[in-house]
Design a protein around this nucleic acid. Structure first.
Lengths: 218, 218, 218, 218
DNA sequence: GATGAATGAGGATTCATTCAT
DNA sequence: CATGAATGAATCCTCATTCAT
């Protein structure tokens, strides 16, 4: 890939094997993702994935031991990207924070893509279930840790269990945007953020937080 | 079927054909339900359902044209039972009301059983999606109508959109109890009810409601 | 069946079992015939035959040991009816005779109905093949015997083998009328009769025969 | 593929994929042909065909979408080979000509092999019927065209319809040789040729034709 | 005798996975 | 390493036949 190499070898297969391989692997992952999402896991054949990725059927099995493993690789990829950033409610407008939390949902569209296939597999695949469970616990933990910070400052409802609140936020965020077609009635982002904030902050405190948040900027 | 006959023949095999047939049909529905729930739709074969119901493979096809049709029958059965009763927040302790709403979830265990298979099929089956969508709209409408009553009395938060609140309640109720295994962290009923109430009522009004509710009993 | 019985029992199930049974048996045969003809043997189910005959599935098996046996019964019925009458070429206009031979084909429509299913079964069923073979030999024999009469009078071509001629007539008659759709070009009855006569009689003899034939009537 | 290569590599497994595939496809066609012929279409399973061709069940479906398609391919193959050569009655002994026409029957054994399954399928499969009809029309046309030549020279019977004669020849040729088992009485080639000639030529003309035909050779 | 529900073997077809080239 | 043909187990579904009522 260095200049010299280019000069020496010209255009000859200069893409290192590794790189080519990675390309193929990724193409397969992409194809798998898209096809699993659009047709479901069982209805997607290895042949299709390979064809869609532009490789031969057999090649699929050079990169993945089987269909399931491709799915697992997909999960590893995606689950990491799902982890929301450690939220710090105090440093910004809480509603704005939730905006980002819900915006993270855009990337979560992909996860939902995976959620599409999970119900199909979870009961048959305890390992998969475990992987997923771990991921959700991680997310839960991160949200909870943020809530605890504000909670310790006495800024949250005293009578609500932060654990339950955390769980509620998570569930609402997960089911929010794209479930619209199922419910017929879609939740709008802004209103949803307000409802979530209400679960966390008493109205007066929230008002103060939103005001203060502007001050530091001054 | 007359009284006398009953006395004379007791329970002797006189069950009418129709009844026998219904029994079998139900056995198949039951088996389908359980197997779809525990193994997923795709992983359940007609043969298995039949075997589990104690009949031969061919018998399955006497009662259902195929797996999908069994699922649809299951849905028709269950969806009706899912409709929560029109809630009247004023006539009782709101938290108690939510208790019942969440308790209705026990029956909903079955629905959740179905929900288990729905994500697997919804994208592939627009008809199914429509059926489900109608059902959810019905539920949403019923909850919302209850909220509007209290809202018109000025008892709810003025700054929250009741539609969004309705949707949140529905989602939380749906995902509540049995998702525990996926989230690792389970929501406890009582706390969940409190959170839900907070989305609807300002704390002082809720207190009043709960107190008043006792008065009539006095 | 006696008068007295009629008087005694009035209108009560007075159709003797035997008669009722015969009716059903015939209904089944009819239905079998029609369905085998229109859908083929393999594609016709016992259930269909029964339904079409207005009886229950099980009843089918009271009258016939199985589907095949119904077919055999059908054959016995039909094959007899196929036997053409002993032809006597001298007693009438040969072409008129062939008219009747070919007209007998109208009734043979039914046989052709059977021919429809035969190719399907012959290779699997040597017994059936034998039955059919016997029938064809019978027909062949009868035609041949007629030809021999005129042949012995020296009225036929001397250089043709009557056996072959017989066979040709039979084949042409069998494949004649209704095969039209397959050949696209249909044979017309009258012309076909002329061709057949040419295989048997020299033109001058035929002319004489047709003239003489009128004389006796005078 | 150069000469040298051939010499060097000999017959080493260099058979191109295509060739191997063709081999298999042909094996399947062969097996299908033989089995359809010996057991009938309905009684032959895809599995059997595959087994007989020495491949696995699934392989069958790589080459043919289903049983029916294999049959259609068979037809395409065979029907072309069935077309008899344009006959020219004047250039040779008519009976010799018919010899060849009937000898073409050897290849027709195969077609008859197909005819074996056709009656089974024709009524159920209009497309198949059409294909066959076209083929028969072609054959009919070719025979007729030959007859017209001699007819225009005034060499044929004046009172017979050449169309009907054509049709008769075709039918006799088609049903000739292998129907023996059904009729019990088989037509012998030579005699059959004589009968056919009689349908076309008056005896004296035929004699002349056969004599003339020798002169040119002198 | 009649009924029709139940049976289960059997055929068509698909697809994950392997392996010779 | 890539290829894609081959495999054959597994599924869906049908239907001839039986048998309890």
């Amino acid at each position: 890939m260095s200049d010299r190499e280019d000069i020496l070898v010209g255009d000859f297969p200069f893409v290192p094997k590794q790189e080519r391989a990675q390309q193929k692997r990724n193409a397969l992952l992409e194809s798998g993702h898209m096809l699993f999402f659009s047709k479901g896991y069982e209805h997607t054949t290895a042949k299709e994935i390979a064809a869609h990725a532009g490789v031969a059927t057999g090649t699929f099995y050079r990169y993945f031991s089987d269909k399931r493993q491709l799915l697992m690789s997909l999960l590893e990829d995606k689950l990491d990207k799902l982890l929301p950033p450690e939220p710090s409610w105090l440093s910004c407008d809480p509603e704005a924070l939730l905006a980002s939390l819900l915006e993270a949902h855009n990337d979560r569209l992909k996860e939902v893509g995976l959620r599409r296939v999970l119900p199909e597999l979870l009961p048959k695949d305890p390992e998969l279930a475990e992987v997923l469970s771990v991921a959700r616990r991680k997310i839960h933990g991160r949200i909870l840790s943020g809530l605890k910070q504000v909670s310790e400052c006495g800024l949250t409802w005293k009578d609500l269990d932060m654990d339950t609140v955390t769980w509620s936020i998570m569930v609402l965020a997960e089911n929010g945007p794209d479930k619209e077609k199922q419910s017929g009635k879609q939740a709008d982002y802004h209103e949803l953020a307000k409802v979530m904030c209400r679960m966390v902050f008493p109205p007066d405190i929230l008002k103060k937080l939103r005001t203060e948040e502007k001050s530091p900027a001054e």
